[in-house]
C-alpha cells in the first residue's frame, strides 16, 4: 500500500502523541490518537485504520489486551506495531507472542518508526 494511511495511535502521554503526530504527518499519514483502551475500542468499532501503533501502559489497562482482541476478530489482519518504553526481553517476547507485527522501543528513532510503518503497510 502506498500513499497516505490512517494510523491509530493508542497512547496516553500528550508529548508522545505530539511526537507521533509530527512524525507521521510529516510523512504524509493521518493520525488518530486515542488516550485509553476504552476510547480506542469505541473508535475501532466504527472505523478501520490501516495500521495501529499501540502503547502498553495505558490508564485503563495493558495494550496487549487490545492487541489480542484485534487479532481475534475480523480486523485480525491490520498491522499492529507495539511502541513501548517497557523494553525488557520479556516485554518484547510477550508483545510478539500476542501477535504484533513489530516491536518499537521508546525512545523512538524517527527512521526506525517510519521504516517499520512502511514495511507493514507494504506487506
Amino acid at each position: 500500500m502506498t500513499g497516505p494511511a490512517v494510523i491509530l495511535a493508542v497512547e496516553d502521554d500528550p508529548g508522545n502523541v505530539a511526537l507521533l503526530r509530527a512524525i507521521l504527518e510529516k510523512a504524509g499519514h493521518r493520525l488518530v490518537a486515542m488516550g485509553s483502551l476504552g476510547e480506542a475500542r469505541a473508535w475501532l468499532a466504527g472505523a478501520a485504520p490501516d495500521l495501529v501503533l499501540l502503547d502498553r501502559h495505558l490508564p485503563d489497562g495493558d495494550g496487549l489486551d487490545l492487541l489480542a482482541e484485534i487479532r481475534r476478530d475480523e480486523r485480525a489482519s491490520v498491522p499492529v506495531l507495539m511502541v513501548s518504553a517497557s523494553v525488557l526481553p520479556g516485554d518484547r517476547d510477550a508483545a510478539l507472542a500476542a501477535g504484533c507485527d513489530a516491536f518499537i522501543e521508546k525512545p523512538v528513532r524517527v527512521r526506525t518508526l517510519l521504516d517499520a510503518i512502511a514495511r507493514s503497510l507494504a506487506a
Partner: peptide, 13 residues
C-alpha cells in the same frame, strides 16, 4: 527504565 524512556522519547524524537 520505562520512566526515563518516556521523556527521552520526546527529546530524541
Amino acid at each position: 527504565s520505562h520512566e526515563l524512556r518516556t521523556p527521552l522519547n520526546a527529546i530524541i524524537g
